[in-house]
Design a protein around this nucleic acid. Structure first.
Lengths: 111, 111
DNA sequence: AGCTTTGCTATCAATAACGTAGCAAAAAAA
DNA sequence: TTTTTTTGCTACGTTATTGATAGCAAAGCT
């Protein structure tokens, strides 16, 4: 799968609407998780893999390339790191955390 | 694939961290797009399919079931609709829109 | 009753993700 | 400098997800 690029057809928008392009990128397995885990600090491929708990190297590598091409991740002396844009996205995702905590309550009494 | 449920193993967390469960749910193809489009107003299956521009009925149906089970969508006399929780998520996703607009500029001069 | 719209399901093809092994390059140790 | 570790992947075969298209049963109109 190629990089979802604003202006080119993406999932959800034939004309490449920028938001749909972003949804296409972030809506791939592990994308948001990788950004979240990387915010804990820059790290090597293998450490990141451990932080993710169960991601395969194939997929991790693929996502890293995509997110790098999308300007969200870069490689530094410390390994993989969030760029400023990557940190932006993290901040936008952050509110989901406390919301998720509340949302999770709905499942607790079930089943 | 079954519904990512907080407390049960999900992508990114063997113990079922609530945020990772949410990422697992939203990080499936079309999930965020569906929520986004539904915010335009409740509608029928086929209209929603059109709004999404190119989603297959198979996938749409699957996502609708998942999002319904996850309390984000419900069925009303007007067809499919966002629940209050669904609207919450929409509001959390909303800031991504203007950010994406800015982000898109990075691609314009490329290629 | 006949025609349309709606909400799907069935089926098969294509693509993405996984799991595991392991290799080549770089870094660290001896 | 040789050996050992660590690192960042790639290869490969399997499973899971997504997609495309056709079309049917139920409900609603006329």
């Amino acid at each position: 799968m190629s990089l979802p690029t604003p202006g080119k057809p993406v999932r959800g928008s034939k004309s490449g609407n920028h938001l749909m392009a972003l949804f296409d990128l972030l809506g791939r397995s592990w994308s948001m998780g990788i950004i979240w885990r990387l915010h804990e600090g820059s790290c090597t491929f293998r450490v990141l893999q451990e932080r993710c708990e169960s991601i395969s190297p194939t997929t991790l590598n693929k996502r890293l390339k995509e997110l790098t091409q999308a300007f969200l991740i870069e490689r530094t002396v410390d390994g993989y790191a969030l760029t400023n844009k990557g940190k932006d996205i993290f901040l936008l995702l952050k509110p989901l955390e406390s919301w998720a905590k509340d949302w999770a309550k709905n499942f607790k009494t079930d089943e």
